[in-house]
Structure formats: C-alpha cells, structure tokens
Amino acid sequence: MRRSRITGFVTSLLLAVGLGLTGAASAQASSTAAAGGYVALGDSYSSGVGAGSYISSSGDCNRSTKAFPYLWNAAHGPSSFTFAACSGATTDDVLSTQLGSLDSSTSLVSLTVGGNDAGFADVMTTCVLQSDSSCLSRINTAKAYVANTLPGKLDTVYNAISAKAPYARVVVIGYPRFYLLGQSCLGLSETKRSAINGAADYIDDTIKARATAHNFVFGDVRGTFTGHEICSGNSWLHSVNWLSIGESYHPTAAGQSGGYLPAFTGAA
C-alpha cells in the first residue's frame, strides 16, 4: 500500500514553507440493504483519514472505526461487511485491489473515488504555494481531465461493480466544498477558495451524472457540510493538522458522522 496523495501534498507543503431518503422510506431502504452484504470501496474519504481511531491491520490504507462505512455497519448489522476503501486510491486502484469481495450476495456498495485521478493533491499544492493565476490554471487543467477522461474511468469502475454485484444498491458519494466564502480567514485568497469550491462542484456534478447513468444513487455531502467548511468556525474538515500531518484536508470524525454518514444513510 502507498501513502495518501494528500499526505504527499502536505509533506511537500511543509518542506516548501518550512512548516436522499428520510423517515420510513429511509428505514425501509436501510433494512433492505442490511439484509445482504455491504462492501465499502474507495479512497481516503471513505477509509476515514482524518477521523482518527485507525484499524492497525489496515496499514497505510488508514481505515478508521469513525469512518462512515464502519459507523453504518455498526448501526445496521448487515450480514457481512468488507471495508476495502484505502487512502490514496484511484479508479485504477479500486479496479485492481478492492472488488474481490463483491458477488451476487452483495446488497449494498458505497464508493468515493475520482479526486486522486483528477490530481487534487497537486491542485492544492499549486494553490497554496503559487499565485492566484497559477492556481486557476491548475484547476482548469484538472477540470479538463474531469470533463474528458474521468467519465470513462468512472464508467469502467461502475461497470465492474455491476458485473460482480448485480443485485447491489450502489451509492456513489461525492466530495464537500472546502471553504466557507466571505469570511475573514487566514490562508488562501478568496479567489483561490472560490475556485477550489468550484472545482469540487465540477467533479461532484460529473460523478453524479455518471452514477445516475448507471442507475446508481448519488450521495451529495455538500449540503451536510454546509456551515462546517474551513473558515466556518466549526469546520468538519482539517486544514493543516500539525499533530498528524497526513490528516490535513480530510474530514474530521465529526465530518464523517455528521457529514458523510447522513448522506450515505439517506441514500442507502
């Protein structure tokens, strides 16, 4: 297993600077999903990087007992639970290392993937260390990848999931916006923050479109994280975490339980 690409970003930064459903309908859907096996796939936003309480046997995948898949499993008791999500995973990694537990008895699958494919870590490195114009240029490059290449990558993953788990309800979950705009907040300029939020919307909208085309359900966390972005004063996202630098720019435990878990539960 390799380190999270976000961890690599934060390390380079330090060196450089010297530093849904509701109510009865939701309950019925969750009850149906819990009748079979649940498999959690994806990247660090599913494995729980930033939430702490990591499972020692997960190694560099940094799977957390406070991550939303682990919390949902504890609350609903599916017939089986496979926690395959891994820090740093791309679509290719999901295809090559995470699909082994899927079969015809799988009734529920969750997935977060696409951010590492789009080069999120390099986007953040550029935006933190360089000018507004360099940041916007790098974001535009990432958006071009999301527009032209990522849809095909997602289609390949989604097709593989459907082939291996034909009866599963598949919930594809997106990414939160990072910043609450219009606040007095140290760090990036408002121009950069706004552009980064726009990039999050762009990849979420792309993921949602491809998931919907495959008859999967999209879990949107932008609503649940509203008011809890960086610069909000009650952030559910780490900025630079000096005590555990690899957790930077990931959801906190509160972000997993208050942001990701409700979005997933409402869609499952």
Score class of each variant (00 low, 15 high):
M1E: 09
M1H: 08
R3I: 13
V10Y: 01
L15G: 14
G20A: 13
A24S: 13
A27M: 09
A27F: 03
Q28H: 05
S30G: 08
S30L: 15
T32L: 13
T32H: 03
L41P: 00
Y45L: 15
S47V: 06
G52P: 00
G52Q: 06
S53N: 14
S53D: 15
I55T: 10
S57R: 09
S58R: 02
S58C: 11
C61H: 03
L71E: 12
P78I: 03
F81G: 05
F81M: 05
F83E: 10
A85V: 07
S87H: 04
T90D: 10
T91M: 11
D92T: 14
V94W: 04
T97S: 15
G100D: 06
S101T: 04
D103I: 04
S104I: 05
V109F: 11
V109G: 13
T112S: 13
G114Y: 03
A118S: 14
A118E: 04
G119M: 06
A121I: 05
D122S: 13
C127I: 08
Q130A: 14
S134P: 00
C135A: 04
L136G: 11
R138E: 14
R138F: 05
T141V: 13
T141A: 15
K143H: 08
Y145W: 03
L150R: 02
L154F: 01
A160S: 15
A160V: 07
A163E: 12
P166I: 13
A168H: 03
R169Y: 05
V171Q: 04
Y175H: 07
P176A: 13
E190A: 10
K192M: 12
K192A: 11
R193G: 07
G198K: 03
D201G: 14
D201F: 06
D205I: 00
D205V: 00
R210S: 14
A211S: 14
T212M: 07
A213F: 06
A213M: 07
N215V: 04
F216V: 01
V217C: 12
V217L: 14
F218L: 11
R222L: 08
R222D: 08
T224W: 00
T226Y: 08
T226D: 15
S232W: 01
S232C: 10
S239V: 03
S239E: 05
V240P: 00
V240I: 14
N241V: 01
L243R: 02
S244T: 11
E247G: 08
S248H: 03
S248T: 07
Y249T: 04
Y249P: 00
Y249C: 06
T252N: 12
A253V: 02
G255E: 10
S257C: 07
S257A: 12
G258T: 03
G258Q: 08
G258C: 06
L261Q: 07
A267G: 09
